[in-house]
Design a protein around this nucleic acid. Structure first.
Lengths: 300, 300
DNA sequence: TCCAATCCATGCATATAAGCATATCAACCC
DNA sequence: GGGTTGATATGCTTATATGCATGGATTGGA
C-alpha cells in the first residue's frame, strides 16, 4: 500500500470506544447498557478496559453515577466524531440495502432458466428497469451462503438455517418420448410394458430410478444406459428418439413432437422452492425480485 | 439527555468496521490479520458478519484476494473517517498519559502522611511544579484498583496481581513511652518487667500483641486497654503518659520527650512497600512520582 | 506444465467476554 | 429515620468469538 498509516494507534478496541461514547452521552453505565442491549457490567468492564488500554482515566466513580474527568472530556470529542461517522455509515448502508438499483443473481436449473425464467425476467425488466439480472444455471445446488447467487429456484428445501425458503407449489412431471420411439418399443400401455424401455437419467445417483420404482415401476440400472446432468441435453435426446425422459409437464407440452408416456398415470409431483439468504429481509431489491418470482412461478 | 440520537444506527459492531477498514486498506484478510494481530479467519468472519449486519455486500470474493464492491467503496469512506478519529483519539490519549501535568493521589498511613511525606512532597513540588498532589490518609488499605489513589505506601505486599509493588526496605520500629510513665511502672529493664505494662493497640486484630509475643513478650489482652486505628492518636496518648506505643524509630526519635523502652532490644522490622496500579507503566506523571517516592523513602 | 507460494474457507478446541444474580452503596421520599 | 429506588462492582455460569490446523483454489514462475 502506498498510504502508510500508523497502525499501532488504531489497534485499540473500537467497541470499547463505543461503550465510552454511549455511556458519556447517557450518563450512566446502566443507561448505556439499555441503549446497546447489553448488560450493565459489560459496559463497565469495557470502559475499565479502555481506560487501561489508553492509560487514561475517563470517568470518576462517584457514588450513584459517573463523572467525566477532564481527560475523558477531551477524548470524548474524538469518539463523538467516530460515532458521527458510524452513524453516517449505518444510514448509507441502509440506503444502499434499500436501493432498488443494482444487479441480482438468480440460480436455476437449465430447464427453468431456458423455459420459465425468460418470460418472468421480461416482466421484471418492465416493472423494475433499474435491476440488472444475472442468471446462474447450475446443475448442482448453488451455494447461496457464498453469495454465488441471491435467489435460487430449487426442488428441495435447504437445510441451512441461515437460508429463507418458500415452497411455491408442487409441480407435476411426466414421462415423455417421441411417438416414433414409443411405437418402436410396442406402444406401451402399462408400467409393465416399460420394463425393457430405455430412460435418460438426469443425475448420477439413480434418484430417477428410485423415484419411478417407488410408484410401481420395476427398473434396474440397465434401463438407464444414458446419463446427463443437463435437462436440455436430456430433452434433446428424447427428441432424437433415443429414449424416455422425465420433465415438468408444462414445459414438455410446449413441444409438439413429443407425447406423454402412459398419459393416464398420475403425474409425479416435485416441490418447487424459492430460496434466498437472510439479506432478503434487508434488501429491498432482493425482496422485489423474490416476490415477483414467487408470484409468477405460482401461476403455471 | 437533550441530544436525542438515533441509536439504532450506531449499534453495529465497531470492531467489524475496523476489520473492514484495515482489510480494505491492506488488500487482503491475511494482511489485515497480521496488522491487527489477529488470525485471518477472524477477520474474514468479522467482515462476513458486518455484511450481514448492514445488509450490504462489501467485498467480492474473487480468487486470491478480495475486491471492493461499489457499495463497499462508498461505505469505506465512512469507516476511513472513523479510523481517522480513532487515530486522533489514540494519539491524544497517549499525549495525556505522557503529560506531566495533572494531579496525583498518594495513599499513606497517617504517620507517614504527617511525618514523612511533607518533606518529599516539597521536593517533588520544586522538581515538578505542574503536578498537583493529593494525600489520602487511610487507616485501612486504600483500594488502588478502584483508583481511590494512584500510589500507596503500605507495610505489606499486595496480593492483587494487577498491582505493581516495590519493596523499599525494612523499617525498624521500637516501643516508646515517656520517662515519667516508665518510672511509674518501675523503669523496666527486661521483657518480663513489662508483663504488667499497658500498651496502646493500633488495630482491632491484636496483631501488635501477637507480634510482640512472637519476639518473647508474654502479653494478653489485658495489656491493651486502649485501641485506636490512628497512629497520631496513639502517639498523643503515649506523650500523655497513658502507656507504651510502637512506632517507626526515625519518626519517634524526633520527639525529645519520648524515650525508647528497652533500648538494647533489637528493633522490630516492618517492610515498607510502594504500590501502584499498572497505569504506572503508561503514565509518565505517576512514574515520576513513584520513582521520587522510592528514592526518598529509601533514604531514611 | 507442474510446482510453489499465497490467500480464503471450514471444523474443532479453547480462551475470552457476556449475561445473570447478587451485594453494596448513595440519594430521595415518606 | 427507615424504606425504596437506581446506581456500580463482583462471582459464577454460559455463550460467543478467537486461534489453530487443514483443505481447496488461484496466481506466478521455473
Amino acid at each position: 500500500m502506498l498510504i502508510c498509516m500508523d497502525w499501532n494507534k488504531t489497534k485499540f478496541d473500537w467497541n470499547r470506544a463505543r461503550a465510552f461514547l454511549v455511556t458519556a452521552q447517557e450518563g450512566s453505565l446502566s443507561a448505556a447498557g439499555r441503549v446497546l442491549n447489553m448488560a450493565q457490567p459489560t459496559i463497565g468492564r469495557q470502559i475499565t478496559a479502555l481506560e487501561k488500554e489508553l492509560g487514561v482515566i475517563l470517568f470518576e466513580r462517584v457514588g450513584r453515577g459517573l463523572q467525566l474527568t477532564p481527560n475523558g472530556a477531551t477524548l470524548l470529542e474524538f469518539v463523538e466524531r467516530m460515532g458521527q461517522s458510524a452513524n453516517a455509515l449505518s444510514i448509507a448502508a441502509y440506503g444502499q440495502s434499500q436501493s432498488i438499483e443494482g444487479s441480482i443473481t438468480i440460480s436455476a436449473s437449465d430447464t427453468y432458466a431456458a423455459n420459465v425464467l425468460p418470460a418472468i425476467i421480461a416482466k421484471l425488466h418492465v416493472q423494475q428497469p433499474a435491476i440488472k439480472v444475472e442468471i446462474l444455471t447450475t446443475n448442482s445446488a448453488s451455494n447461496l451462503l457464498k453469495r454465488e447467487a441471491d435467489i435460487a429456484i430449487r426442488s428441495f428445501c435447504p437445510t441451512e438455517p441461515e437460508l429463507i425458503a418458500k415452497k411455491i407449489r408442487d409441480v407435476p412431471a411426466r414421462l415423455y418420448a417421441t411417438a416414433q420411439y414409443l411405437s418402436a418399443i410396442g406402444n406401451p400401455k402399462t408400467i409393465a410394458d416399460l420394463s425393457k424401455a430405455e430412460f435418460i437419467a438426469i443425475d448420477k445417483h439413480e434418484s430417477l430410478m428410485k423415484g419411478l420404482n417407488a410408484v410401481g415401476f420395476e427398473l434396474s440400472a440397465d434401463n438407464f444406459p444414458i446419463m446427463t446432468e443437463n435437462f436440455l441435453v436430456m430433452w434433446e435426446m428424447v427428441k432424437q428418439s433415443i429414449g424416455i425422459g422425465i420433465l415438468d409437464s408444462f414445459i414438455a407440452e410446449k413441444e409438439p413432437t413429443i407425447v406423454s408416456v402412459l398419459p393416464d398415470m398420475p403425474p409425479l409431483m416435485f416441490p418447487l422452492w424459492l430460496v434466498a439468504h437472510r439479506e432478503l429481509n434487508t434488501s429491498r431489491r432482493i425482496r422485489v425480485v423474490f416476490d415477483l418470482l414467487a408470484k409468477e412461478l405460482g401461476k403455471y
